[in-house]
């Protein structure tokens, strides 16, 4: 089962790579051919097949993403089966769960809001995370040290954090697209309108922000039962709090004149930097109680 979880993760990685290609061709292909048409001095203009049939490409991206999500769910289920505990107890498992959750939110958002182009940012992110996972983090199931052997609350804490970060990943995707789009300039015809991107970004923060609050609170509750303090300014928990506060700043600013659009998008990209910092850097660089969760 342990091997099955690793194999399924590789399958998900391959499918994600396929999705990335499809989404890129879909989102930026037409733009490339337009650029070529507009370039003077080109006698014969060849328009590649993927530039002429964007819709099937977009659909292919969606299908590949669904398939990758399925493979990820298989990987996580096999992992759960193999270790007998929820599959997010070390970096490998946590990253696997994280990528699965990002894709889950992504397919839901794609269904709700329609635009496929968000996959052109979100799926590369998933691909990078999966690649980092197979490259850096050991995949074996290992027993947990006593401090991490709390099933209910601890598993809930980590699970909710995974979901929160995954939801916030979509706001990052939407913000990046917003900036690529150049706001109202609408550089890419196939990308969604800036307003829709702004709305998607907000909606994903509206999901991720309360989840992050819940995840931090569950962590505090667990800390209280495990160590007798709900808050200890441990680097990991403090970093999660800082991340939450930054999204709080975003929620206050986005409604203000002057902060709509591009500025909010920049803030969201920076806030996602805080997510990744909390997620990776604190475990790998800054020592603390949480770093014994290990890599």
């Amino acid at each position: 089962m342990e091997q099955a979880s690793v194999t399924a993760l590789w399958v998900a990685l391959a499918l994600t790579a396929a999705a990335v290609l499809a989404y890129w061709a879909y989102a930026f292909g037409g733009w490339l051919s337009l650029r070529r048409l507009a370039t003077p001095g080109q006698g014969e203009v060849t328009v590649a097949i993927w530039e002429r049939f964007p819709e099937p490409l977009g659909r292919a991206g969606t299908w590949a993403t669904w398939a990758a999500l399925l493979a990820m769910l298989v990987s996580l289920a096999a992992r759960w089966q193999a270790s007998g505990r929820p599959p997010w107890a070390n970096m490998w498992e946590f990253t696997a769960a994280f990528t699965g959750a990002i894709m889950l939110f992504y397919v839901l958002f794609e269904r709700w809001y329609g635009p496929r182009a968000l996959g052109a940012v979100v799926q590369p992110l998933v691909l990078a995370l999966l690649a980092a996972n197979v490259a850096f983090f050991p995949a074996e199931v290992r027993p947990l040290v006593p401090a991490l052997q709390s099933k209910g609350i601890l598993a809930a804490h980590v699970g909710v954090m995974v979901l929160a970060y995954a939801a916030l990943s979509l706001s990052f995707g939407a913000a990046v697209l917003y900036l690529l789009q150049g706001g109202e300039r609408r550089r890419f015809p196939r990308l969604p309108s800036p307003d829709l991107l702004d709305e998607i970004a907000f909606r994903s923060v509206a999901i991720g922000f309360p989840l992050l609050a819940l995840g931090i609170a569950l962590g505090a509750y667990w800390g209280n039962t495990a160590w007798g303090r709900y808050w200890g300014w441990d680097p990991k928990e403090t970093s999660a709090l800082v991340t939450w506060l930054i999204y709080g700043v975003y929620l206050h600013l986005r409604g203000l004149r002057g902060w709509r659009g591009a500025r909010s998008a920049v803030l969201l990209v920076a806030a996602y930097g805080a997510v990744l910092f909390t997620y990776f850097a604190v475990n790998l660089v800054v020592a603390g109680l949480h770093s014994y969760a290990g890599v």
């Binding site: 403090t238 970093s239 506060l245 709080g248 206050h252």
Partner: peptide
């Protein structure tokens, strides 16, 4: 809300020092 953003950002920055 502008002040809320400012003071929240200040607290976040101070806490970040404590992380780094």
């Amino acid at each position: 809300p502008r002040w809320a953003a400012v003071i929240t950002a200040i607290v976040a920055a101070m806490a970040l020092v404590g992380v780094v």
